[in-house]
Simulated scan of single mutants.
Amino acid sequence: MILAIDVYYIENRAKTVGILFEYWTDTKSDINAVISDYQDNIEPYQSGQFYRRELPCIMSLLKKIDLSSVSVIVIDGYVQLAEGKMGLGGHLYNSLNKSIPIIGVAKKPFAGNSPYLIEVVRGESKHPLYITAIGTPLEDAAANIKLMAGKYRMPDLLSFLDQQTKLFKSETVV
């Protein structure tokens, strides 16, 4: 199974959502499961230390999933930053004892990490997605993200995942 994860924040609270699917070409109707987790007292954002805020949310969600069936995890963010410094995905990989490959899909460039990524242009978009990976060849990771269903820049399943996290706005009083 492939697990894609995203987190959305409101103040110091977070909703983490994971979707499980079997094939890179799967569509929304093929999703095997949608799993959610909520956390309070989230660390504030710190530039260059994003993982401190997001990793605890992801680890909490992972407690609800049988990881023995997960072959790869896709995150919204970077695996590697500038000069080989670990991003969220790298920290997640290490937290999982390097047992599950991690693919990072980012929408915005990060200065200085171009040696560690492949830009993937999907659909008719002029803007690439920035793909990083650990535990799997970067070329394979980029090819798999390009292969995902959807005619726009962002694959349909990752857009659906993003929408699921943002439902948090209507689930809670701001």
Rank of each mutant, 00 (worst) to 15 (best):
L147G: 12
V79Y: 00
N113K: 07
Y78R: 15
E119P: 02
M1D: 07
V74F: 11
L157S: 02
V70P: 03
K108G: 13
N94C: 12
A33S: 09
K85Y: 07
D140E: 14
N12Q: 14
I75W: 03
W24H: 04
Y23V: 09
I102T: 01
K108E: 14
V34G: 05
P56I: 10
V121D: 12
V79D: 00
T136E: 11
P56E: 06
T16E: 03
I35M: 00
M148P: 05
N41C: 05
Q46K: 15
L157R: 02
G89K: 00
I73E: 01
I100W: 03
Y116G: 09
D156V: 02
E83V: 13
S47F: 11
P101G: 09
Y8Q: 13
F21T: 08
I65A: 03
N41M: 03
V173W: 14
I31F: 02
P137V: 13
H127G: 08
D162H: 15
G18F: 02
M1S: 10
I118R: 13
L138G: 04
D76M: 00
Q46M: 13
D156Y: 00
S69I: 09
A14T: 10
S99C: 06
L67M: 07
A111T: 14
I10W: 07
S47W: 11
A149I: 08
G90H: 04
I42S: 04
Y93K: 14
F160I: 06
Y116V: 08
G104H: 02
Q39N: 13
P44R: 15
D40T: 15
I10Q: 13
H127C: 07
T132L: 10
Q49A: 11
M154D: 08
A133H: 01
Y130R: 09
D6C: 04
R122L: 02
A149H: 14
I134S: 04
I31P: 01
I75C: 01
I145H: 00
F50E: 14
D6I: 03
D26Y: 04
S69P: 01
S125L: 07
I73W: 01
K107C: 06
L161N: 01
Y51N: 05
I118V: 12
M1A: 08
K169N: 15
L88H: 01
I103F: 00
D30Y: 06
I42N: 08
T132K: 07
R153A: 05
P155D: 07
K166Y: 05
D162N: 14
P109V: 04
D156M: 01
V79L: 03
K146H: 14
L129Q: 04
G123C: 04
D140Q: 15
